[in-house]
Design a protein around this nucleic acid. Structure first.
Lengths: 257, 257
DNA sequence: GTCTGTGTTCGAATAGCGGGAACACACTTT
DNA sequence: AAAGTGTGTTCCCGCTATTCGAACACAGAC
């Protein structure tokens, strides 16, 4: 209900997070003390002290006079991924689907009202989009996301649609709340979601939700490929059938944990 | 020479990092406010405020009254991995080697005087050890690590051997500095390193360094398998040959960036 | 209905964060 | 050579923002 928290945050921690964000953007090049300080509007001394503590704790690494993010994040990130129940369960299915269809297959989970790409497998003729593992994407913009969104508790659906607004990604992206709701109805009815160039021009996709025992989606699996290949009955029949069989198996295994 | 820094750290940031560490340990179960507070010796209110800011910034996610790490770390971690020059270059070779040998193949990099597992590929008969992507391991304890260690600048080698001490992992782990130095000499001479149950009982491995234009190792690739399969000429001839060919190609590509 | 466990909020004291100025040092520039 | 410009580093002081403890709300157990 409340768009969370005016509650006074720990500002020092926030600057540390901002610092890490800036270093992420800097990438492999990294940044020096003064550069970080000006970028964040801090005194050189404070930037220095922050960088030093983060380096001492191993979050960032110093090479000469430039700092960059260390593999500490890889360690934590992989840990998060491995802990997720869908990772172990969906990964083999995702690999299978990629091998069978020769297309790009994704496993996506819901987190904080958005979709997160947990695992992806390449088929022989995979399209490469900008989607990467760890990426957060608004749920209404892609097949897996819509499949999830259609199967969330009603309160959460309302919060997502009315709250954040429906940002546009391509001209085909559904940005009208009413239109999206009827789309979600049809997704629930069919059991799967389609994406016709709504997130990437020239790319179509099919997505199906993975639901828990309450029927609420915890994630989804999707198959994506070039629009001229994924069309007709392949897009509306064969791939959905394949996909629904796969997610069904995942759901069964999920229940038996 | 100095084991770095008595320099006054930013304590607030340190507690935030500690908090994340505790939440990592808690895994998917997560932790509540009081649990975190007692674990870290903080007042409930401070733990509460920290958790709230971390959640607001998306680093952790709250489900009911328990908090756990979010995929924020996956995003940052994958970013770090993708940025590393060895990832793009070594990955195809690692996949190839795994397919050819049917064994487990790792790409390891050096960071902060330790080895970090950057990428791994499974062969048809892979052994599964506790090594995971993102894991930090002391360089002297495994084949890839020793291959790296043997090809670092002398100053850094001395710092690693004399500084941290040589911790034991199995009875076979080399813990004597003198013994390690002669081992490193032989590794430099042969071009590759062997690991005979020095990190995992029953597991042998071969590792070869990936060197930059100065001849210093930036990482290594290793092949690991059961001791009774990896022995004789396979271990000392065939696999090293295969491996040295692979790292050589990687080095060439590395120079042409 | 009481009790014990949560999470949450408030105010108040002081520790420690942040800033600025001076320092050391490495490269250019003249 | 010497002055100049850019680093990173250190110190100290003022004031803010962090921390704590205590009180509160709420839930479930007994």
């Amino acid at each position: 209900m409340t768009a969370h928290s005016d509650h006074r945050p720990v500002e020092t921690v926030e600057t540390a997070i901002n610092l890490l964000g800036v270093l992420k953007q800097a990438g492999r090049t990294g940044m020096g003390v003064t550069e970080v300080a000006t970028e964040l509007g801090l005194a050189k001394s404070t930037a220095h002290r922050h960088l030093q503590t983060l380096a001492d704790r191993g979050l960032i690494v110093r090479a000469g006079d430039i700092y960059r993010l260390s593999s500490w994040f890889l360690d934590y990130g992989v840990h998060v991924r491995n802990q997720h129940p869908l990772y172990d369960l969906a990964r083999p299915k995702v690999d299978e689907l990629a091998a069978e269809t020769d297309e790009k297959v994704w496993c996506v989970i819901e987190e904080d009202d958005t979709g997160v790409h947990l695992y992806g497998a390449d088929g022989a003729h995979s399209v490469t989009t900008h989607a990467r593992v760890g990426n957060r994407t608004p749920l209404h913009q892609f097949a897996a996301g819509k499949a999830i969104l259609a199967n969330l508790p009603e309160g959460q659906i309302a919060r997502i649609i009315d709250g954040h607004g429906l940002s546009e990604r391509t001209p085909q992206t559904i940005t009208d709340p009413g239109e999206l709701r009827t789309e979600l109805d049809s997704i629930r009815e069919e059991g799967y979601a389609l994406n016709r160039e709504e997130s990437v021009p020239g790319v179509h996709a099919v997505g199906a939700p993975v639901r828990d025992e309450d029927g609420h989606a915890i994630g989804a699996i999707s198959i994506a490929g070039p629009a001229n290949r994924l069309r007709g009955e392949l897009l509306t029949q064969e791939l959905p059938d394949l996909l629904l069989g796969a997610v069904n198996e995942v759901e069964v295994n999920l229940a038996h944990i």
